[in-house]
């Protein structure tokens, strides 16, 4: 058995120490040791993107990274998005545009979309579809996810946003 080591990283802004075996995958550390259960275990084979977290400015599938590889890193998970009870524009966008049904893929979708909008604040629909291709959703058919990201992008650029979804528009009327 290989020796356990202490790994330190910043998790949603807070300095965090964990004791792990080198073979422990980040998704297990997050979910089982740190109660960060937003990132989900979907396929476990780096295909579905449900476990996506942001590590040092990169979207990463946490089922395919070892916790020991994160020493000294800055991690952001879905738990770090809402501030002071106010939803992040992406969370608001996914709500307003009905960007989810079962919600299993949503934390990964939002975390990935966050990095995409950091790199490209005004993506076209084609850009969004290309750069979100590492996240699978089995419910929505993606159309509303694209709209949710467009909603968030507009809001983050400081534009006035309204939902395109008829039911949500009725609700807020």
């Amino acid at each position: 058995m290989s020796k356990k080591t202490i790994v330190n990283f910043k998790l949603n802004g807070a300095s965090t120490d964990v004791m792990v075996e080198p073979r422990e995958l980040l998704i297990h550390t997050l979910r089982d040791k740190l109660s960060i259960t937003g990132p989900h275990i979907g396929c476990e084979t780096s295909h579905c993107g449900a476990c996506t977290v942001d590590i040092d400015g990169a979207s990463v599938k946490s089922c395919t990274v070892l916790t020991v590889q994160c020493e000294g890193s800055e991690l952001l998970t879905i738990e770090g998005f809402a501030k002071g009870g106010v939803l992040h524009p992406l969370q608001e966008g996914f709500t307003q545009e009905h960007g989810l049904q079962c919600g299993f893929c949503t934390p990964g979708m939002i975390t990935r979309a966050y990095r995409l909008l950091q790199e490209n604040p005004s993506p076209t629909e084609e850009d969004i579809r290309f750069w979100m291709a590492g996240n699978l959703c089995r419910c929505t058919g993606y159309q509303n996810i694209v709209k949710a990201i467009q909603y968030a992008a507009a809001k983050m650029r400081g534009e006035t946003v309204t939902t395109s979804h008829p039911l949500m528009a009725e609700l807020s009327a």
């Binding site: 750069w131 979100m132 590492g134």
Partner: peptide, 12 residues
């Protein structure tokens, strides 16, 4: 590179 894997995999 754009045809390899998916965005997350391409960061790593």
């Amino acid at each position: 590179a754009r045809q390899i894997a998916d965005p997350q995999v391409r960061y790593k």
